Amino acid sequence: MKMFYDQVDKAHFKEFMVGIKPNHYESTNTKRVRFIIAGAMVMFLMVLILIITCVYLSLNSASQSDIAHQKQQENTVEFTPGLFAYGPDKNGLISFSPRDHMTYMNYFNRLESSLADYSTLRQSANLDRYIHCDDNTTKVPHGKVCMLTLDKFGDNCASFDMYGINEGRPCVLLVLRPDDNMTPQPFDFSDGKNVDIKKKIGNRFSSKSVAVSCEGKTDKDQALMMRDNYTAMVDYNPPKGFPLFYFLERKTDGYLYPAVMVQFNTVPPNTRVNIVCTAWAKNFNNGQPQSGQKYSTEFAILLK
């Protein structure tokens, strides 16, 4: 009898175990679901990290721009009036090899820092202060500042284009800071007046802007830059120079001094070329800005 019950119990146990044994299909399906859920969680975390990173970089970029802007505004009082070139080092030299990033990063960073004031992002975020101005603007409301954003400096002299480094066509930012009590007056070129100056400016003249020109300091320097007759030796942006409307209101916090980006297209390699740039206004240095150091600036370019 005992043997009979043992056999019955064993039979029931086998049936019971068969009943609770996991189905192979269900097990495979469960693993697949878990895999999909795990993959979705990983993707979600990656997207979340990417969003956080983008937000951080955006805020950090704006913060750095504001810090640089604040420093430049604080240092403005230390600047003497005149025409200033940004890009050259403290010795007035731009020297690098387009093939060696170790030689051009300092130059690149100097331009990046100098352009912080003209950040499109910072100005667009403060439209209660910055307003659009043009040659028809005759008055700037108190507390307002005319916008001057990076797009005005042309496509070739931009951060994403490495300021012309890769092509061996370096860019220089020229900033004009006249005396506080002075409103620049463009030269009059009508009726054949000021012919020599007109030759330097060419068709970039405007009665509503202070023109600027850059050339070789000596005849030898100028000849070195004339190696390619089919290429403009120098490009200017804005082409007409420094618009007069930027001088209408200069005592507002956040004021932007007008600037022109200049690109040198024909500097030969392995040869030092000395450059002189001049802002042309008839009330600068008694009508001869090229003869003084205030409204003319000099630097040199050496491409390796």
Rank of each mutant, 00 (worst) to 15 (best):
F264Y: 09
D179T: 04
L244H: 07
L174A: 05
Y236A: 02
P239N: 06
N265I: 00
Y295H: 04
P178K: 01
D191E: 15
N274L: 04
V172E: 06
I275Q: 13
K240H: 00
N181W: 15
T231N: 09
K294G: 00
T266N: 12
V175L: 02
P239M: 00
N270P: 07
Y246M: 01
Y230F: 05
K220R: 11
G287P: 11
T252Y: 03
Q290Y: 05
Y257A: 05
N194K: 04
Q290C: 02
M182Q: 02
F189S: 01
D191N: 11
N181F: 15
P184W: 11
Y295Q: 05
Y295P: 03
K282R: 10
R227P: 01
F245W: 05
Q290S: 06
D191A: 15
K251M: 02
V260R: 03
P268I: 10
A259H: 02
P238G: 08
F284W: 00
V210C: 05
K193Y: 14
L248Y: 11
C214A: 13
F247D: 03
F187R: 12
D235S: 05
W280N: 09
K193N: 13
D180H: 08
V212H: 10
K294N: 06
F187C: 08
M182W: 05
N203R: 07
A223S: 14
S206M: 13
V267R: 10
N285T: 11
D180W: 08
Y295E: 06
F205D: 06
S213W: 01
V262Y: 01
W280L: 09
A211S: 09
P269K: 15
S207F: 04
G292K: 00
W280Q: 11
V175W: 00
M233V: 09
E215C: 14
M233G: 13
V172M: 10
L224P: 06
G216D: 14
L244A: 08
S213K: 03
K193T: 09
A281T: 01
L176T: 10
G241M: 05
K294D: 05
V172W: 09
D253W: 05
K199E: 08
E215S: 15
E249W: 04
D179I: 02
G254F: 07
N283I: 04
R227A: 09
T266P: 14
F245H: 10
V262P: 02
N285P: 06
T252W: 03
V234S: 14
P178N: 04
M225T: 12
R250V: 12
K198N: 04
N194R: 03
T218C: 04
R177Y: 10
D228V: 15
R169E: 08
N194S: 05
F205M: 03
Y236Q: 07
G287Q: 12
F264Q: 12
P289H: 01
F284I: 00
A281H: 09
G292N: 02
D228L: 11
P268R: 07
V276W: 02
Y295R: 04
V267N: 15
N237L: 08
A223Y: 13
N203A: 03
T266D: 15
